[in-house]
């Protein structure tokens, strides 16, 4: 298990450096940030001075090595636009993103777990059909579209909840639903098919034969078995929510990492984009590591491998 974790950590480090390289190259293909930083009437000499001050006049490999070295030392550069370290700027936004992603995950699970389990237990019944319809709708409607609908109907017309911004629990509800909407379908279907298999298994038959209540068989003994494939999905979607929630964050004006990065991209604020991408990559690696450890907690066969 220990070797396995070390191995995964090493893989994670490689992934983070890879992500850095891609972002580093892609950004320098996208245009010259100095053009945005200097006034319209700046001279060529001003440009040169600015580039040299930012280190942008050096060869690209050197820039990358310098960048990596600084990153290892905890220095991710200063934002070109805001007078503060780029990583601080991004980390400042992290709690908002975490909050939103967790709320989205809770919403998705609160819907997917009962739907998936009940549609397997009552296969072919009304709840199964309703879940199927719901899953289809969920996959057919992108999150930002759901978000816009929620804003129009729930926030603007009914005025039940605020349409944008962060603050109270009420502010969290609509973006969490929009963010958690999409994974519900996949989670429901995965859980349903896992539960269908498990409920046909010999051990469930044995559990029935010794008189365990059906409720306990379904929600305790079978569900823990079905949790392994579900955890995989949770990992994938949760990492996506943390690293890629920018669409929802923009729609709801949520002050999260995603929105900060999007704004930085438009402003060619390289260090902030880099900090955002590093953070997303690290989050991805950490979430995946947590998922792998969770497998071990749920399934002793994995723990003892």
């Amino acid at each position: 298990m220990r070797r396995y974790i070390l191995h995964r950590l090493w893989q994670g480090a490689v992934a983070v450096v890879g992500a850095l390289l891609i972002v580093f190259v892609a950004q320098r293909l996208s245009g010259d940030p100095v053009a945005l930083l200097l006034p319209m009437d700046a001279t060529e000499a001003d440009f040169e001075a600015m580039r040299s001050a930012l280190g942008l006049d050096r060869p690209l490999p050197v820039q990358f090595v310098v960048f990596l070295r600084d990153a290892l030392l905890g220095d991710f550069g200063h934002s070109y636009l805001w007078n503060m370290p780029a990583m601080d700027l991004v980390l400042e936004r992290l709690p908002a993103t975490l909050e939103l992603a967790l709320a989205g995950l809770v919403f998705a699970l609160a819907l997917a777990v009962p739907l998936g389990v009940l549609s397997a237990v009552h296969r072919g019944g009304w709840i199964d059909n309703a879940a199927k319809l719901f899953a289809m709708l969920g996959q057919a409607m992108p999150g930002f579209w759901v978000g816009l609908l929620l804003i129009v109907f729930v926030a603007v017309q009914l005025q039940w909840l605020p349409a944008y911004g962060r603050g109270t629990v009420g502010h969290l509800v609509l973006p969490a639903i929009a963010l958690g909407w999409y994974p519900v379908a996949a989670m429901t279907r995965t859980l349903r098919s896992a539960m269908l298999d498990i409920m046909q298994s010999d051990y469930v038959r044995m559990e029935r034969a010794i008189g365990l209540p059906e409720r306990a068989i379904v929600w305790r003994f079978a569900l823990r078995n079905a949790a392994v494939p579900l955890v995989t999905l949770i990992g994938v979607y949760f990492a996506n929510m943390l690293g890629g929630a920018f669409v929802i964050e923009v729609v709801f004006a949520w002050p999260g990492v995603g929105r900060a990065v999007v704004e930085a991209v438009f402003a060619r604020d390289f260090p902030v984009v880099q900090a955002g991408v590093i953070l997303a990559a690290v989050i991805f690696v950490v979430v995946n590591l947590i998922v792998d450890l969770t497998y071990g907690l749920i399934d002793p066969r994995i723990r003892h491998e």
């Binding site: 298994s201 010999d202 051990y203 038959r205 044995m206 559990e207 034969a209 010794i210 008189g211 003994f221 823990r224 078995n225 749920i298 399934d299 002793p300 066969r301």
Partner: peptide, 17 residues
């Protein structure tokens, strides 16, 4: 009434002690 089922390899729940 209780039953001992056929296949011991599959009759126990793998994720409970």
């Amino acid at each position: 009434i209780a039953m001992i089922s056929q296949d011991p390899m599959t009759s126990l729940n793998p994720v409970f002690s």
